[in-house]
């Protein structure tokens, strides 16, 4: 009896490994995407000068949930993401704020003139220090911040339609988007 159980051991080991590999290789999962260390922590304080308008600060944005998108004119995936952001702003009326990451203001203005401006306001993070405090490791990154100023979610890379439908919109709804 025990001997038979011993013969099953390789099968059990195989199943455990196969299960682990299937989990690690599941579809729609990018193993290079890193979980943010900032989730459920208070967003780092920042006060940024505005691009073509008023600036933004963390404390100024408190009071209602907001979505902050780090972008740059030199970033190709950001251009790819632009139509999605425009749709979110125009159709879903998402409170979308931009942080222009390590960029020249003239270049960013040109980009927005070309593609349209989905942001309510834009802050200029010229030296990238605000991005560093957020743990940004590549643009675009999109953060959802609740009304108390806590980071609730980070999206790395251009927002996809699935992410918006399955994650971003439900999250904002649960946070009580205004």
């Amino acid at each position: 009896m025990t001997r038979r159980a011993l013969y099953m051991l390789p099968v059990v080991l195989f199943l455990v490994l196969a299960g682990y590999f299937a989990y690690a290789l599941r579809p729609n999962h990018d193993p290079h995407e890193l979980p943010s260390a900032m989730i459920d922590k208070e967003a780092p304080a920042f006060i940024l000068p505005g691009l073509n308008g008023d600036g933004i600060s963390r404390d100024g944005l408190k009071g209602s949930p907001v979505v902050i998108n780090f972008f740059a004119s030199w970033c190709v995936p950001c251009r790819e993401e632009e139509p999605m952001l425009m749709r979110l702003a125009d159709r879903e009326h998402i409170p979308l704020y931009g942080i222009d990451y390590k960029d020249h203001p003239e270049d960013a203005s040109r980009l927005l003139a070309e593609f349209g401006n989905p942001f309510r306001r834009i802050g200029q993070d010229v030296d990238g220090s605000v991005g560093l405090n957020f743990g940004v490791y590549g643009v675009p990154e999109t953060y959802v911040i609740d009304s108390a100023g806590h980071i609730r979610k980070r999206f790395v890379g251009p927002l996809t339609a699935e992410q918006v439908k399955n994650e971003l919109l439900p999250l904002l709804k649960s946070l009580g988007k205004s």
Partner: peptide, 8 residues
């Protein structure tokens, strides 16, 4: 740095 970027 770990606070910002995680243990990774």
């Amino acid at each position: 740095i770990v606070n910002r970027y995680g243990d990774f």
